[in-house]
Amino acid sequence: MMAKGSKAWYEVYERYIFEIEQEEAEGLKIPERYRLGALCRPWEMNGNLFSKKAGRYSPSRLNITIGSVTLTAWLTVGLIHYAANVILYAEGPALCWLPLILALIPASFLAVLVTAARNMWGRSRSLVKP
């Protein structure tokens, strides 16, 4: 959520800077190559991850992707762990508190999913849909 919110604000600032440059093109007297609307090109680029040169990557998109992959991995591991506990509980004697844990895990999991799906955490009051 933090990465997506940061990207939204960056795009807001970028749009306003671009609009100011377009409106004040004559008044600002900024050469075209220095304006935000000009093509963005670093000095050198190399997409190889082992190179120390700049690459064509979006840090905010990478953060969002890392978050999505981590969430998927966490959910997979959690579901496997939960299924293993259910199987072990069904096969033989278990601890007396295990049924309570097995009931609380899906309830908490569902609460997290519902609130995250409805975007109820950390929503900006300023940003509106484009």
Rank of each mutant, 00 (worst) to 15 (best):
M2Y: 03
A3V: 02
K4V: 03
K4Q: 11
K4I: 02
S6A: 10
S6G: 03
S6L: 11
K7D: 01
A8H: 01
A8W: 01
A8G: 01
A8S: 08
V12Q: 05
V12I: 08
Y13G: 01
Y13Q: 01
I17Y: 00
F18E: 14
F18G: 10
E19K: 14
E19V: 09
E19M: 02
I20S: 03
I20K: 08
E23F: 02
E24P: 01
A25F: 15
A25P: 05
K29I: 04
I30Q: 01
I30A: 07
E32L: 15
R33V: 05
R33E: 15
Y34T: 04
Y34H: 07
R35I: 08
L36K: 09
G37A: 13
A38E: 09
L39A: 10
L39F: 08
C40P: 00
C40S: 10
R41E: 14
W43H: 04
W43I: 11
M45Q: 08
M45S: 13
M45P: 00
N46Q: 11
N48S: 12
L49G: 05
K52E: 10
K52A: 07
S58E: 13
S58L: 03
P59N: 13
L62A: 03
N63M: 11
I64A: 14
I64V: 15
T65C: 02
G67I: 00
G67S: 01
V69I: 12
T72P: 00
W74G: 01
L75G: 00
T76D: 10
V77A: 15
G78R: 09
L79S: 09
L79Y: 14
L79M: 14
I80V: 13
I80H: 04
H81V: 12
Y82K: 07
Y82A: 12
Y82N: 12
Y82W: 07
A83S: 15
I87K: 14
Y89N: 11
E91I: 13
P93W: 00
A94Q: 12
L95C: 12
L95S: 15
W97Y: 15
P99C: 08
L100G: 14
L100D: 11
L100I: 15
L102D: 05
L104V: 12
A107S: 07
A107Q: 05
F109S: 14
L110F: 13
L110E: 05
A111H: 08
A111N: 06
A111G: 11
L113D: 01
L113H: 04
L113Q: 06
V114R: 12
A117F: 06
R118W: 03
M120K: 06
M120D: 08
W121R: 00
W121E: 03
G122Y: 05
S124W: 06
S124A: 07
S126T: 13
L127N: 04
L127H: 03
V128P: 00
K129F: 04
